[in-house]
C-alpha cells in the first residue's frame, strides 16, 4: 500500500516539526518540488529562516508557521490538530527536531543529559503519538522518524544521545506495527554520520553522508513500500555485523 494522496505518489501537505532542521527542510523542499502545495514549519517561537520560507514559496508552496516546543509534550496534540485544520489531511509528518550534545558535557551535568533525552526521545514519543492519532483517523499518511545508526548499537563515545535514538528507533517500530492496517505508515530512517550544521566541527565518521543524501533517501522511501531506510544503504549489512561484534571489541572502537 502506498500512503499517498494521488495515484502517482504525489503528496500535497507536509508538516515539519523542528521547522529549522536542515534535514527536515531538505526533505520538505524536495516534496514541494514534486508538487506539495501546503507546508507547515513548526518550530520554537513560530519562526523559520526567511530564506527557507521564501524558497518554498517560490517553488509554489503555501507556507504556514506554528509555535512548537519539543520539550512541552502537553502542546503536541493541539499543534497536530492546528496543522490538520490549516493544511487539510496530513500526507507527510516529519519530526526532525533533536539536539546533539557532547558526551563529556553530559558526564559533567546529568541534568543537561536528561533534558536532551527528553527532547530526542520524549518529544518524539508525544509528537509521534499525536501525529499517529491523526494519521490513523484520516486513514492515510506517513510519519517519517529520523532515527540513527547511533541507536542501533549504542557506543560509549555518545551513549546518552545513542540511547535516546535507540529508544526512538524501538518506539518507531512499535508505532509502525500498531498502525498496520490503518492506512497510515511509519518510515524509520537510520542515517550514519550526517555532515551538516548539527555536526559542524566534528570529524566525519566512516561512511558519513550529506544532508541531501538523507533527504533523497527519504523521498525514495516515500515512493516505495519500504519501512526502514539506511543511509547510505550499505550501513544496513554493516550494522548487522556491528550488532554481533563481541562487546570487548565494540568497547574499544575509537568512536
Amino acid at each position: 500500500m502506498r500512503n499517498v494522496r494521488n495515484a502517482l505518489g504525489g503528496i500535497d501537505t507536509v508538516l515539519l516539526l523542528g521547522g529549522r532542521s536542515e534535514i527536515g527542510l531538505a526533505i520538505v523542499e524536495r516534496l514541494v518540488r514534486d508538487g506539495a502545495r501546503r507546508v507547515m514549519l513548526a518550530a520554537r517561537g513560530g519562526t523559520a529562516p526567511a530564506e527557507d520560507i521564501e524558497r518554498l514559496e517560490r517553488l509554489g508552496a503555501e507556507v504556514h508557521l506554528a509555535d512548537f516546543d519539543a520539550a512541552r509534550p502537553e502542546t503536541h496534540v493541539t499543534l497536530i490538530e492546528e496543522a490538520a485544520a490549516k493544511l487539510g489531511d496530513l500526507d507527510v509528518v516529519i519530526p526532525a527536531f533533536g539536539v546533539l550534545g557532547s558526551q563529556a558535557v553530559y558526564d559533567e551535568d546529568p541534568v543537561v543529559a536528561a533534558r536532551d533525552v527528553a527532547v530526542n526521545f520524549g518529544g518524539h514519543v508525544s509528537a509521534g503519538l499525536a501525529a499517529a492519532r491523526s494519521l490513523r483517523e484520516q486513514g492515510h499518511g506517513t510519519l517519517i522518524v529520523l532515527s540513527s545508526v547511533a541507536g542501533v548499537r549504542v557506543r560509549r563515545a555518545n551513549f546518552v544521545y545513542g540511547s535516546a535514538k535507540a529508544g526512538l528507533d524501538g518506539f518507531a517500530q512499535g508505532l509502525a506495527d500498531s498502525l498496520h492496517g490503518s492506512g497510515a505508515r511509519v518510515v524509520v530512517v537510520r542515517p550514519g554520520f550526517v555532515i551538516g550544521r548539527m555536526t559542524r566541527g566534528m570529524t566525519p565518521a566512516p561512511m558519513s553522508v550529506t544532508v541531501d543524501a538523507v533527504a533523497d533517501a527519504v523521498i525514495d522511501a516515500l515512493r516505495s513500500r519500504r519501512r526502514t531506510v539506511w543511509v547510505p544503504a550499505r550501513l544496513g549489512p554493516v550494522f548487522a555485523l556491528m550488532r554481533i561484534l563481541p562487546r570487548a571489541i565494540w568497547r574499544r572502537l575509537p568512536r
Partner: peptide, 9 residues
C-alpha cells in the same frame, strides 16, 4: 478501477 492509492473505510 485503476487500483491505485488504496485507502481504508
Amino acid at each position: 478501477w485503476g487500483r491505485t492509492a488504496p485507502t481504508p473505510a
